[in-house]
Computed example of a mutant assay.
Amino acid sequence: MASTSERFDTAGPEGDTTLAAITHLLALFTWVVGPLVVYVVSDDAFVKENARNAINWQIWLTVYSLLALALVFLFIGFLILPVLSLLDTVFVVIAAVKASEGEAWSYPLTIDLL
């Protein structure tokens, strides 16, 4: 899937972009739980969009990780798992930076479920 970005008007409070960026970083430590809490609690459309993107990525990362885990028996999974870990970190940092700039970045390799 091609990554897309949606631009939001960030004329509102500065905390909106900050919370959106924190939502992505929170996913590194809490998987889907942190972004889901932000998604449910927040009333801001920009924050919700970023939380939704973070949740979708974490779900797909889990799917990819389970597939790689199944491929461990063919020894290719040992190569894929570290790459997925690195991709997770890189994608989350990119998404957090984009969110702090007022963009809702859609993660590559992700189909929207939420």
Rank of each mutant, 00 (worst) to 15 (best):
7 R>V: 14
8 F>S: 05
9 D>W: 04
11 A>D: 14
11 A>Q: 15
13 P>E: 12
14 E>G: 01
14 E>A: 10
16 D>Y: 13
16 D>I: 09
18 T>I: 12
18 T>F: 09
19 L>W: 11
19 L>I: 07
21 A>V: 04
21 A>P: 04
22 I>M: 06
24 H>T: 02
25 L>P: 06
26 L>D: 04
27 A>Y: 04
29 F>P: 03
30 T>N: 08
30 T>E: 10
31 W>Q: 04
32 V>F: 13
33 V>T: 13
33 V>W: 11
33 V>L: 14
33 V>E: 09
34 G>D: 01
35 P>F: 02
35 P>D: 06
36 L>G: 03
36 L>I: 08
37 V>Q: 06
40 V>N: 12
42 S>L: 03
42 S>G: 06
45 A>I: 10
46 F>L: 07
47 V>I: 13
49 E>V: 01
49 E>W: 07
51 A>R: 01
52 R>F: 02
53 N>D: 10
53 N>Y: 05
55 I>Q: 01
55 I>G: 04
56 N>H: 12
56 N>T: 04
57 W>Q: 06
57 W>T: 00
57 W>I: 02
58 Q>V: 12
60 W>S: 04
60 W>I: 06
61 L>V: 02
61 L>T: 03
61 L>K: 07
61 L>H: 10
64 Y>A: 15
65 S>L: 11
65 S>G: 12
65 S>Y: 10
65 S>T: 15
66 L>S: 00
67 L>E: 01
69 L>N: 07
69 L>V: 08
70 A>D: 04
70 A>I: 12
70 A>G: 11
74 L>R: 03
75 F>R: 08
76 I>S: 13
79 L>E: 05
79 L>Y: 11
80 I>F: 11
80 I>D: 11
81 L>G: 11
82 P>Q: 06
82 P>I: 04
83 V>G: 09
84 L>C: 09
86 L>I: 15
86 L>S: 03
87 L>N: 00
87 L>A: 14
90 V>E: 09
91 F>V: 06
91 F>E: 00
91 F>Y: 08
92 V>G: 00
93 V>D: 01
93 V>P: 02
93 V>H: 07
94 I>D: 05
94 I>Y: 09
95 A>E: 00
95 A>V: 07
100 S>W: 03
100 S>H: 13
102 G>F: 07
103 E>S: 13
104 A>S: 15
104 A>E: 00
105 W>A: 01
105 W>K: 05
106 S>D: 10
111 I>R: 07
111 I>T: 09
113 L>R: 14
113 L>S: 13
